[in-house]
Write a protein that binds this DNA or RNA. Structure first.
Length: 417
RNA sequence: GGGGGGGUGGCAGAGUGGUCAAAUGCAACGGACUGUAACUCCGUCCGGGAAACCGUACACUGGUUCGAAUCCAGUCCCCCCCA
């Protein structure tokens, strides 16, 4: 019963598990067969990097380009000034234009790893919706676009309904978010001939709005496609780790830690993640994901290497793997471990306390936590369990690089700056 | 506009004058087991201190009391019902 797409892009998306919903799978398939399809995904500019939560979208754009189409990474510079009510119970903070531009530059660094930007027909482009939203004239907007939206319909959207049911305030400002997002699609359709918007399944309502609006104001048929909401096999949310979000930008998260995140994938997720986040052939992903027992660890290493190669390059992936082997298999030290450089001013004449060392390295959030670690026997200095919470590290000992460990997995190197 | 209920640790949610740094669950962290898994089990989980101990904390401000998360007054916010 399921439609079997003929286009390379949709075929790949379907077999790899990217597809959740599509407004018109057959129609889109045909469009993809008939020529270059420009397609966009919107990203908000609330942070200066993207995290793994967006990786599925990024991979989708990469496949799009790989299969001969044009990716558009729309930056929500204008809409970020408002905040998206979708799935949020509280309004997002509003950012200044300056901060938003910084964020956009940071995000671009991530995209540069996955996509080729330029002026060619299938080169990616990165417009910013502030380009058309900032200069919008209120009266004109109401006249030309406001007439196409009914309040009745807008009230049926989950993002709105939820807020109203809980009697949480939904300001007019936020309420307008969906109009602007719909307007984006119409505008991209005009500027780039964009005929497809993709996004997470939570964006379905916004996407459909954009399609309707584009049809009404531009008389063009356009499509929408959503990806499934990603959760891990144990039901928890994807993309969080002990230290926080898994950023794709290396100045936010080192390639080694990024690699570790994938290395620690749950068994049950390996096959799925290989298909979504690597470019290995589907059959290979399935074979690796089906490995049993300790063998699946090899698959996890492949997963980590592949994903890290895409995000940070082959060298970074190899270095991360080498460090991991050194640390986990030989109990040694690898160059790639997170390294903290101590300011000589942090040391007193008698050196620095072991507790402070843990706090400075980021392995413990507070002195209390460091002491707890020590009391629980989870703290190690150069692979020797630390038992004395009052221990001082003398100056000359810090001159050499020290290896700190919190538990079996979290390690850091400390050296004197 | 009127009436009622409520704001407690990352979240959920007990606690109604001392024994409360605050039950319990979830999340998180450490340990055992293992495959750098999962499951299970044990432990920890505000901050400072080697420790004794100290400091902050139960929306906010002030008050009553030897003593307040708990009582009183005011302020802000949220929820429910009626108009």
């Amino acid at each position: 019963m399921t439609y079997k797409p003929k286009s390379e892009f949709l075929h790949e998306m379907q077999t790899r598990g990217f597809l959740s919903d599509c407004t018109d799978l057959e129609g889109l398939d045909e469009a993809l067969l008939n020529g270059v399809v420009p397609a966009y995904i919107g990203f908000d500019a609330t942070a200066d990097s993207l995290h793994v939560g967006s990786l599925i979208q990024i991979m989708m754009l990469r496949w799009l380009q790989k299969t001969g189409h044009k990716p558009i990474t729309l930056m929500g510079g204008g809409t970020t000034k408002i905040g998206d009510p979708s799935g949020k119970d509280e309004s997002r903070p509003q950012l200044t234009g300056e901060k938003i531009n910084e964020n956009i530059a940071g995000i671009r660094k991530v995209f540069d790893k996955y996509l080729t930007f330029g002026d060619g027909p299938t080169d990616a482009v990165q417009p910013n919706n502030a380009e058309w939203l900032d200069g919008l004239n209120y009266i004109e907007f109401l006249r030309d676009y406001g007439r196409h939206f009914t309040i009745n319909r807008m009230l049926t959207f989950d993002s709105v309904k939820l807020r109203l049911e809980r009697e949480q305030p939904l300001t007019f400002l936020e309420f307008n978010y969906m109009l602007l997002q719909a307007y984006d699609f119409a505008e991209l359709n005009r500027r780039y001939g964009c005929v497809l918007q993709m996004g997470g399944s939570d964006q379905w309502g916004n996407i459909v709005n954009g399609i309707d609006l584009t049809r009404r104001v531009n008389q063009n048929t356009v499509f929408g496609l959503t990806t499934p909401l990603l959760t891990k096999a144990d039901g928890s949310k994807m993309g969080k780790s002990a230290s926080g979000a898994i950023w794709l930008n290396e100045d936010r998260l080192s390639p080694y830690e990024f690699w570790q995140f994938w290395r620690n994938t749950l068994d049950a997720d390996v096959g799925k993640f290989l298909k979504l986040f690597t470019e290995l052939p589907v059959a290979e992903c399935e074979r690796l994901g089906a490995l049993k027992g300790a063998e699946i660890n090899e698959a996890k290493i492949i997963l980590a290497n592949e994903v890290t190669t895409l995000a940070h390059g082959a060298d970074a992936a190899a270095a991360a793997e080498a460090t991991a082997r050194e640390v986990f298999e030989k109990g040694g030290v690898g160059d790639d471990l997170p390294t903290v450089t101590l300011d000589p001013a942090d040391l007193s004449d008698s050196g620095i306390s072991i507790v402070q060392l843990f706090v400075k390295s980021g392995l413990a959030k507070s002195g209390k936590e460091a002491k707890r670690l020590i009391a629980e026997g989870g703290a190690k200095l150069d692979d020797k369990t630390v038992s004395d919470a009052g221990m001082m590290i003398p100056r000359d000992a810090v001159a050499a690089t020290l290896k700190l460990s919190a538990g079996k997995k979290r390690h850091a190197l400390v050296k004197l700056g």
